[in-house]
């Protein structure tokens, strides 16, 4: 029975239907949590005693940075599943995740640099975390470029999976080498944003936003995957039926 369930789930047709049902159930809570998180973060939470109001950008920045790494790991995991068990759907999820992950990485970089302007007095510092986030963005762009360069979608998906796996092994190495490089060259500076034990009134909106971002990823990846499935299965019977119905 269990096996049967997975087989049905992995068939593109069932996935298409199920994802269509799931999307509103993920999107509405995401919207509500975002509104609640923004309200508590921007209105309710007190200003920081050192950073004033500008710390509030962290309610976007920190969840975005978490998501950037999380999505890369999901992408590599889905790619590995697709590579090993040849499950088409896992390939679709891996491919669909890449642009979303790249957007989150970009968002984390942009918000980080906007925060850095009043705090550090400059838009960009070669801080260890910013730098490794930038490299992560390059890794995402490599995945997207490779996917676009290969015409055959299934070949592209397998190539992307290998690249994502190589990348996922390298991410910790890159992260620690960058951190090490930075401390070697600059020593401990003001840029080191040591996390103080965060107050509950700031932690709650942060967690709300983090969950909201996760839900956002979940429903957007389903939307993208639905579209990708339709494109890949455009010659199959059920897609034609679907097209004739509408």
């Amino acid at each position: 029975m269990f096996n049967n369930f997975f087989h049905r789930m992995a068939s593109p047709k069932h996935f298409y239907g199920l994802a269509g049902i799931l999307i509103p159930w993920l999107a509405v809570p995401c919207l509500l949590l975002t509104l609640a998180g923004l309200y508590y973060g921007l209105v309710k939470a007190p200003p920081d005693y050192q950073q004033g109001d500008s710390y509030r950008i962290m309610f976007i920045h920190v969840p975005a940075a978490w998501m950037s790494l999380f999505i890369y790991i999901v992408m590599a995991g889905a790619g590995a599943i697709g590579l090993i068990w040849r499950i088409k759907l896992a390939e679709v999820v891996a491919i669909s995740s890449a642009p979303i992950g790249a957007s989150f990485t970009f968002l984390a970089l942009i918000t980080g640099s906007i925060w850095g302007k009043p705090m550090w007095g400059t838009w960009w510092v070669w801080d260890a975390r910013l730098t490794s986030e930038l490299i992560l963005l390059f890794l995402y762009l490599g995945v997207i470029a490779l996917n676009n360069a290969i015409d055959d979608k299934r070949t592209a998906a397998r190539a992307v999976a290998i690249l994502a796996l190589v990348g996922v092994i390298n991410i910790p190495i890159i992260h620690y080498s960058v951190e090490w490089w930075n401390t070697l060259h600059q020593g401990p500076t003001v840029t080191k944003f040591d996390k103080p034990s965060i107050h509950l009134s700031m932690l709650i909106p942060l967690l709300l936003m983090a969950v909201a971002f996760k839900l956002y990823y979940a429903f957007v990846v389903l939307m993208r995957a639905r579209c990708e499935v339709l494109e890949r299965e455009r010659n199959s019977g059920w897609v034609k039926e679907l097209a004739e119905k509408t």
């Binding site: 490299i135 390059f138 690249l163 890159i174």
Partner: peptide
Amino acid sequence: LTVGLRKGGMILSLLVLPLYIPVLIF
């Protein structure tokens, strides 16, 4: 990964250079 592509050169640098960073740093 790129050997079968006609214009693999630019993509190759995008794929490989980020992975070279740790060696460069150390």
